[in-house]
């Protein structure tokens, strides 16, 4: 603790007061309320085929979106760090669009694009591919909102990678793709996974960009946050809370597992890389 600097009591006090008011008390209320529902009420809300189907959709679509973002996030980060080209700053700025654009705006824009009569939807329709109002559409919306995470996680790590490590591999006879596969990819993997985890977590809870393109057909394109919304519209607070609890628990377990995986990987790869990620 710094001995000379002033202001600790006030700043600490204000911070704790503010966070209590906005975050802590509401969260405690949620836990309190959940415990008050009782097993039976909880169980009745959970045993619902619509919820199972929504959970399956939320998790698979979020997972696929995270995979797509992992691959393309790596590609974009690579291009931004390693190459100079016309439009680089534009590309760099665009990456942040999903962070800055309201989710509802993204939702209606994507829906218009991928609807049967939209720019892309009308191209896909003759091929028999439907995007809007199908799980594919949900996945596309979730890919959109998760896009910046992998790019922004991988960029600094890629930039900090030692060029000499690549040169060493080349001098030992490795071809560019082999160098990438054996040396660079393993070093970038923790950052890629960290970015994918964040994208996945964000996708699980996402609402605004998905509701428009999903079409919200029961048992087919309903996501979990939408079910919570439905319960609330019927003033079934207990049901909504039960579903929210299940979702929070499941995503917590998943994030925990992802963190363990990352920890294990970065321990393998050594401190140097772990620090930069």
């Amino acid at each position: 603790m710094s001995r000379t600097l002033p202001g600790f009591p006030f700043t600490f006090g204000f911070m704790m007061f503010y966070m209590s008011f906005i975050v802590f008390i509401p969260l405690i209320a949620l836990v309190w309320y959940t415990m008050g529902i009782g097993w039976e009420g909880f169980w009745n809300a959970i045993i619902d085929p619509r919820l199972f189907s929504a959970l399956r959709l939320s998790f698979t679509a979020s997972f696929i979106a995270a995979i797509v973002n992992g691959a393309f996030g790596l590609l974009i980060a690579w291009v931004l760090v390693r190459y100079d080209f016309f439009g680089k700053r534009l590309m760099d700025g665009l990456i942040d669009l999903p962070f800055a654009l309201p989710t509802a705006v993204a939702g209606i824009a994507l829906t218009s694009l991928y609807a049967e009569n939209g720019w892309i939807g009308s191209l896909l329709a003759p091929l028999g591919i439907e995007v809007a109002f199908t799980p594919v559409g949900v996945t596309i919306a979730l890919t959109f909102i998760g896009l910046p995470f992998v790019v922004r996680m991988v960029e600094p790590v890629l930039r900090s990678l030692d060029r000499e490590t690549e040169e060493a591999a080349g001098l030992l006879g490795a071809r560019p793709f082999t160098i990438f596969r054996t040396v660079m990819f393993p070093l970038l993997l923790p950052a890629i996974l960290a970015g994918m985890t964040l994208a996945f977590a964000r996708a699980l809870g996402e609402y605004g960009s998905v509701v428009f393109i999903a079409g919200n057909i029961p048992m087919q394109t309903e996501i979990v946050p939408l079910l919570i919304m439905n319960k609330l519209e019927q003033f079934d607070y207990a049901g909504a809370t039960a579903i929210a609890t299940v979702m929070l628990l499941l995503s917590f377990i998943l994030l925990f597992a992802a963190n363990i995986l990352q920890w294990w990987l970065s321990r393998k790869i050594g401190q140097k890389v772990a620090h930069s990620s």
């Binding site: 609330l232 909504a240 929210a244 979702m247």
Partner: peptide, 12 residues
């Protein structure tokens, strides 16, 4: 999830 955030304030 933002939806859960909203739910919390309804509970309160």
């Amino acid at each position: 999830s933002p939806v859960i955030a909203g739910l919390i304030f309804i509970i309160l």
